[in-house]
Design a protein around this nucleic acid. Structure first.
Lengths: 258, 258
DNA sequence: CAGTGGTCTAGACCACACT
DNA sequence: GTGTGGTCTAGACCACTGA
């Protein structure tokens, strides 16, 4: 049994809500489980203990554990499978690959995605990147450029900035060797143990600069979608800042509003 | 008590899942409540019966009603307020106004939104609109053009197409008189009893055509966000198809990815 | 078959809003 | 105080998976 979990049990507080530190039991359970996930107790794709087992471990009823898991499943952190158990979500899951990529082909047909890395260097963070990643300007980041193909067509040019603290070992050679077939986030989760769990995006329309236009095989000044993204791992820690240029001649950014 | 609800109670089926028509009790309750919402039994902003009352009415336990309401609250159809009751969501709620507008000012400061209607006519649906609204080409739709200002700046030019079946009475004069201060969807819900509950958006980057450029006070061929939207009311019925051109010089389309 | 998550129940008690 | 939603429990039974 994991140390983080078993030692955490005594920390559960059963008390009145009047207390300033109060939170419902199921949220405390959730917090403990989030810590375990962040600490890597259960890796992506792993089977977590059964509800009954967790209930016994935490000293609460199964219904309380269930409610904690419900919330985490709703946030795509866990995946329930009836009869089998509850699993840690993974970017390797067939239905979760390219989970954060909102670009779709206009014709709706599935297209093969392929990542072509261009460069990968460690450099000092510029002002915008430092703000996005909560760093000091000049702190080192891993800067990656790559093209994303949908079938034979280059559709996205990405400039990504990753925390050097985590990704310092990343090289262009590694990206070329391992990072092609699978999604990048799957690769990060396998190779670096960093699981991206949520992201924010800021979308604008811009005119293509010469360099980007060349990569995407469009005319200079062609309209492009500029998609800036900040991705977080557990504990709300930002680990990636990305600037993506999307061609939208035959693709679109799809979004559902609830 | 509403006829739709009371007469529906006997329809609840308690049976084994092996049956082809099986669904869990709480989903049947949810379906009944959705019907009631769609039929206007409880209008936007209205207080619905208490959980205990609904449980008695449907002949199930409070926990089962609770689970149905939980799902509907998660979908922003209902709003729970501890101590007060559960209410039908409304586009008039302070936190839900412009709920579907993802455009935000870059500087993060709140800006006053103002809608300036330009035209409102009934016309035959073109092919794209007919497909989007599940009509036959040539069927009548209400076509509206309007500008949306953020403070003093025109930021969005919208072309909207509404089901004439519902919105035939809508005129430019009415829009000018009533539709300015509040969000359009709030106006639709009050004036036409149509509550938009979800939408899809397709986003692209395009070059501004002359007419649109003039409205938005940008150069011809300036890059704009083209946001196409299909909005639904209850029972998954599409009622609006919209094409919006967004300037993104000082604004951006914000999205959260889970 | 045993073990898992999924549904449903009944009841207790707490927190919050209004009167 | 009364009535609302919010939390927590214990237990029964169902549905699905895989040995």
């Amino acid at each position: 049994m994991s140390d983080a979990l078993s030692s955490s049990v005594p920390h559960i507080i059963r008390q009145a809500a009047a207390s300033p530190t109060f939170s419902p039991l199921y949220r405390q359970i959730k917090t403990l489980m989030m810590s375990a996930l962040g600490a890597g107790e259960w890796g992506p794709g792993a089977l977590i203990p059964s509800e009954a087992e967790l209930a016994a471990r935490f000293g609460v009823s199964q219904g309380t554990v269930r409610k904690a898991i419900d919330e985490m499943a709703a946030e795509n952190l866990l995946v329930r499978r009836q009869g089998k158990g509850t699993f840690v979500a993974s970017h390797g899951d067939p239905h979760a690959r390219y989970r954060f990529l909102r670009l779709r082909p206009d014709n709706g047909l599935p297209q093969q995605k392929r990542s072509l890395p261009i460069s990968c260097v460690v450099r000092a963070a510029d002002a915008a990147t430092a703000v996005a990643l909560a760093l000091q300007p000049g702190d080192p980041v891993v800067a990656i450029e790559r093209l994303l193909y949908f079938d034979a067509r280059p559709v996205v040019f990405d400039q990504m900035f990753l925390l050097a603290e985590i990704f310092a070992e990343l090289t262009l050679a590694t990206l070329e060797r391992e990072g092609r077939a699978e999604s990048l986030y799957r690769f990060f989760e396998q190779r670096f143990g960093v699981h991206m769990i949520r992201a924010e995006e800021w979308v604008r329309a811009v005119a293509a600069e010469a360099g980007v236009a060349k990569y995407l095989e469009v005319a200079p000044d062609a309209p492009l979608l500029l998609v800036e993204r900040r991705a977080y791992t557990y504990a709300d820690r930002p680990v990636e800042w990305r600037r993506g240029f999307y061609t939208t001649d035959q693709h679109h950014y799809y979004n559902e509003l609830g």
